[in-house]
Design a protein around this nucleic acid. Structure first.
Lengths: 237, 237
DNA sequence: TTACCTTTCTGGACTAGACCAGCACTGTTT
DNA sequence: AAACAGTGCTGGTCTAGTCCAGAAAGGTAA
């Protein structure tokens, strides 16, 4: 007649999960404060926190630095095969995209970037760092590296818009072959800062190396996604 | 003249990271016990543990339930475009694969599986659950669902070998079109148990829906990878 | 209205312990 | 040699607090 021993952490997670599933806690809504919750569940803040961290790693909830915990919105479907850019992709799924430029400048390329773009040592590259939102929520930090040879004067344009469209309109360039590298890892320090999450949060890193329609290696970018913001689809024919 | 305030958790992580980078802690080797480490760094076990958890989420170290913490081996390159199966892929990268069958039986299909395989309600499917290792380390738990129509008597074969090869040798079937769905999330309860990791560990879920050379939907599988065990590559032409 | 301050509330970081359950090794018994 | 029973060590889980820094809201003065 022994009761099944359920861990407190698991039990708390299940209760919250259920509330979320039944829509009592709507996507985007804020959870009560940690202290309130720990009192509600009759446990310590540390234990309560562990339960929240587990739900976070499942992608059910997320936090904003020192602001609180929120219920995660649905994931964005990111299909690697259809060459859609961020704005088009987000809009097509009935959601509202936005972009902020963090920095844009010509600078010496790091060793890693030289390798990706097959540039000689000590080359210059154009680096564009941007953060992007879906429905107001920061979900993506991108570092873009362009081979300056193909993009004279690009820093003069408004970089809040889609770079893909800039390429087409002003440089007559379109993406051809693309190589993706997807690595599940923690967010880098810069990415965490830009996304306003605590360092060490789980993330999904997607590196793209892009060729144009003439098979020239024109740019690459490093995307850091909140791990709960997307699911990636690939159709292999 | 104020010292830069470095968080203890970060500092501990950096020290361990450095030791790993310089090969003083080799891949696969065991870290000292948590109590030892917390004494070494002059901090609490809770704080020390937080540092370890961060390194885990970065994929630098991993743990085996109640056995200890270990340095992560290099990630396996998983290229979605080259139709290689687990054994071939692992061997090609100079490492040693192995497979264990956990269960294999005909059973009623869940709603999700019916949807994936486009089966009518209350259909039967063949479910094969297996765990797989690289160099002895558990890295992958797979649930395989086959449409029984195409695979009479498959449960009689030795399922420790590659199923892809079974298909080719005995059923004259080859994979054609494939659809992948990649979701970064925590490991499911079954996956965590099979991989002997604590529930809620970060993982990468890859669902595949497979068609054969005649465009028939033959099977699907649900892969649960340790998040630090792979990086995924995709070449889009 | 606007700019600035203060207060309150939030999560972030940390201390100092406790008890439990499973693993691995060791020594004994069969 | 093989099976078994201890036993110590390991991570897993949890308690009960403290102090700090940033975010937000509200009030006050220009």
């Amino acid at each position: 007649m022994r009761e099944e021993a359920i861990k407190a952490v698991t039990a708390i997670g299940q209760v919250l999960q259920e509330q979320i599933d039944h829509g009592l806690l709507a996507p985007g809504s804020k959870l009560p404060a940690e202290r309130k919750l720990s009192e509600l569940f009759g446990t310590t803040r540390i234990t309560l926190r562990e339960a929240l961290l587990q739900l976070e790693s499942q992608g059910q909830i997320y936090r904003e630095e020192r602001r609180g915990w929120f219920v995660s919105p649905p994931r964005l479907a990111y299909n690697l095969m259809q060459r859609s850019h961020f704005h088009a992709m987000v809009s097509a799924q009935g959601r509202v995209p936005s972009t902020e430029v963090i920095s844009a400048r010509l600078q010496p390329a790091s060793a890693a970037v030289c390798a990706w773009l097959q540039l000689p040592a000590l080359s210059s590259v154009i680096q564009i760092c941007r953060s992007r939102r879906i429905d107001g929520r920061l979900v993506l930090y991108v570092e873009h590296y362009l081979n300056p040879k193909y993009f004279p004067g690009i820093l003069e344009f408004d970089l809040n818009q889609s770079i893909t469209e800039l390429y087409a309109r002003h440089y007559d360039l379109q993406y051809g072959r693309v190589r993706f590298e997807i690595v599940p890892t923690a967010l880098s320090v810069e990415a965490a800062a830009a996304l306003k999450v605590s360092v060490g949060s789980p993330g999904l890193q997607i590196a793209r190396v892009n060729y144009d329609q003439h098979e020239r290696l024109i740019d690459c970018d490093l995307e850091f996604w909140r791990h709960d913001a997307i699911h990636v689809g690939v159709d292999v024919v």
